[in-house]
Design a binder for these strands. Structure first.
Lengths: 152, 152
DNA sequence: ATAATAAAGTCAGAGAAAGTCAAAGGTGAT
DNA sequence: ATCACCTTTGACTTTCTCTGACTTTATTAT
């Protein structure tokens, strides 16, 4: 069941696709279009267009204010995946791992099949025998190791 | 005498049949339909739609939340993968896992990329934080879970 | 300069949905 | 009649979304 936030997310993503990786929106105008409070736009941006998901957001208040959302460049897939690997750290939650995997899949750096395998490898079903206090650590190791394999 | 859980199980299976292997349900709605507490739906899913039985379950909480149940593909070529999954048992060595992976790759049931990812996921580098006595068990869980995903 | 106006930002609370877990209740085999 | 196992229930928890009042910042008009 697609929630309003999902619809707004798709709308913004379509705009970004049409404008080559960057878009400038007016928060109030967008909120008016979708008949919601302006702060919902902030919510969508905070949860869907954050840096973990590969976006960069700038804004300006006051008259002529606006929000600019940029998709990170993927000119060099190797560098981008390496950057993600380096950013992962010693531990990662399933939720956060999923976001990273979706991210590289959205950028078409890996295929749908590879995405599915990555997600299957790090979900709690795969790790059910690992003591809970160790899971996020093992998850990080697996994810980094697998991502590394995609650029070798 | 069919218990309520059996009835719910059949109901969900019928939905899956009608929708080509995958269905999205609302836990509360379904519980309302069957006049039971919502957690009974969790019970049915945990006992009838687990991975041993060939299902994959994902879910999302909060507004717009839902539960998605996917059944493995019934295409003939994949019987072999199911066979391997069932033959793996509770534990598997890295060597033995590699042999199985090469096997399905040789039969072209998975691509080269998928083969590489499977191997990366279960090697000792991925599992370096897992106590040695648990490694072969975790390896088996990951391998089975990933192979299952290839036939969903 | 100052005031008015026009944006965007923050944050906490309400609401919506699913997850967990342990206790209670049935059922079937011995 | 008992024991082991399966099912049902419900109180409590966690996660995700939506809303609105209040704050901050930038521009424009006086």
């Amino acid at each position: 069941m697609a929630r309003l936030s999902d619809i707004i997310e798709d709308f913004i993503k379509d705009m970004i696709d049409e404008t080559d990786g960057q878009v400038e929106i007016q928060r109030n105008e967008l909120a008016g279009y979708f008949n919601c409070v302006p702060s919902q736009i902030n919510y969508v941006i905070a949860t869907r267009f954050n840096s973990e998901r590969g976006y960069f957001v700038e804004s300006k208040r006051g008259g002529g204010g606006h929000i600019t959302i940029s998709r990170m460049s993927t000119d060099k897939p190797y560098d981008y995946i390496m950057h993600i690997i380096l950013s992962i750290g010693d531990e990662i939650s399933k939720h956060s791992a999923d976001i990273n995997i979706d991210n590289v899949a959205d950028l078409e750096l890996i295929s749908e099949e590879e995405k599915n395998l990555l997600k299957a490898a790090i979900n709690d079903n795969s790790l059910k025998s690992v003591p809970v206090f160790l899971r996020d650590k093992v998850r990080a190791d697996i994810l980094k190791n697998m991502l590394m394999k995609t650029i070798i």
